Amino acid sequence: MTRRTVLAVVGAVVLTTVAVGYGVLTTARDRTTVAAANTLSLTGPRIMFRSTAPDSKGHLALIAKDDPAGPRSVSALTCLRVYAAGGTGTCLRQDGALTTFQIAILDPSLNVAKAIPLVGVPNRTRVSGDGRLVAWTVFVAGDSYNHGRFSTRAGLIDLGSGDMVDSLEFLSVTLDGQPYTAPDLNFWGITFTADDNHFYATMSTGGHRYLVEGDIAAKTVRTVAKNVECPSLSPDGRRIAFKSAVDGDPAKGWRLSVLDLSSGARTPLAETRSVDDQPAWLDPNTIGYAVPRAAGDSDVWTVPADGSGAPRLLIPHAESPAALG
């Protein structure tokens, strides 16, 4: 998480009020939709994403997983980030005034079933596999310990019970096996396990970043590994895809890797560009992520989860991918 990232997000929000001319030719692969998107339950596997194409910029969109170069279906919803699983979708978006935001929780027909105000600029979101748990991360400013720099907040809600954790900072923390309290705790990038109780996230404190495992019922988090950011749990629950700061220094960029939770082994992926994103598992063997191509515009790329192969462009003018079906 960097000030540069925050400023880019805020800038993207401002640009939504301005008509921007790109002055480039688009190919058939770049063009958007022949149909309106109005359901998460389209026939066949789909990938949901946020479009960054000039003619559908910011809109939630869907594309056939086996034909990512094909026509897109585009929703009327505009979002800063999206995700979906188990028939539940999320859309991090503006809420009225320019500096007000919310997480819109979507039903299978892409209607807003619930909207939760967010204090801060939204940045990450995830949904549990069965659609019951929803998480978000926002950037905030004003923490006294941070000397005016941006901090992060991560929260979650159980849609079944209505119980909500406004911020993971309210949970009890164990660091390296010992109870831990500090004023500089920051959390981001929640990803859920299959039991609707446990999750993984990133915690930073004292200049270090940790992968933590959380227990919602017990209201606890414990550290698992160092230098792990924006985790994404694999479909089999055994691996974590993540970004890590090169040499532990975010100023040098981030490298995508996969962590084996049982052995602790880390596998660097074939993508060697800096990726400032929370990766997504598009299938048990494939990681998806966004790489900027220009200001306010990105492409979704994929790479094998075992460290082999090479990066491959999957969806141009897109970001925030989520596999459906």
Rank of each mutant, 00 (worst) to 15 (best):
R239A: 01
A64Q: 01
T27M: 00
L211T: 10
S75Q: 03
V10S: 10
Q278V: 04
V18R: 12
L269T: 00
A322N: 15
A97W: 03
T26R: 08
L159A: 02
I287T: 13
Y83I: 08
T191F: 07
I216G: 00
T302A: 04
D67V: 04
R132Q: 10
R238N: 08
G206R: 02
E229N: 14
D55H: 09
V24K: 12
P304S: 13
G162M: 09
L62F: 15
I63Y: 00
L269I: 15
Y83A: 11
G248S: 11
G307S: 12
I116H: 14
R266H: 08
S320N: 14
F187Y: 12
N227Q: 02
A141L: 08
T88K: 02
A182K: 10
V13Q: 03
R312Q: 11
R4E: 14
T33E: 13
F139T: 00
H317E: 10
T5W: 15
D30H: 11
G177R: 12
T174R: 06
L77G: 03
D176I: 06
G160D: 15
E271V: 14
R50L: 15
V221S: 01
S257P: 03
A305S: 12
H317G: 05
V221R: 00
L60I: 04
V300N: 04
L98M: 10
S263N: 01
T2I: 10
H147C: 02
L168S: 01
L175K: 06
A318T: 14
F139C: 01
R255A: 11
D55S: 11
G214M: 04
G120N: 03
I63T: 00
V14E: 07
V14C: 02
T88G: 05
F49V: 06
P117R: 08
T191C: 14
K243S: 08
V165S: 11
G162N: 15
W281V: 05
R153P: 11
V112H: 00
G248P: 15
W281H: 09
C91G: 03
S161H: 09
V18L: 07
W136Q: 09
M203I: 06
Y180P: 01
S51W: 08
T272G: 13
D95A: 08
L25T: 13
S109E: 09
F101K: 05
A270S: 15
R222A: 04
T52W: 00
S151W: 00
T181R: 12
A194P: 10
S234N: 09
R209A: 09
G89D: 06
A85R: 06
P279I: 07
T2R: 09
D176M: 08
E229D: 12
L259P: 07
G264H: 14
L168H: 00
E271Q: 15
L62K: 04
S73K: 13
T27W: 01
V20I: 14
A194W: 15
A113M: 13
S73A: 10
Y83K: 09
P54H: 07
Y200G: 05
Q278E: 12
W281D: 02
S144G: 07
T272Q: 13
D260K: 07
K226A: 05
A76P: 03
L110C: 04
P292C: 00
T181H: 07
R126W: 02
W301H: 11
L282R: 00
S75N: 09
P54M: 04
E213F: 05
Q102G: 11
L60S: 01
V140Q: 13
D247H: 15
Y289D: 09
T88P: 05
Q102P: 13
R209I: 03
A225Q: 09
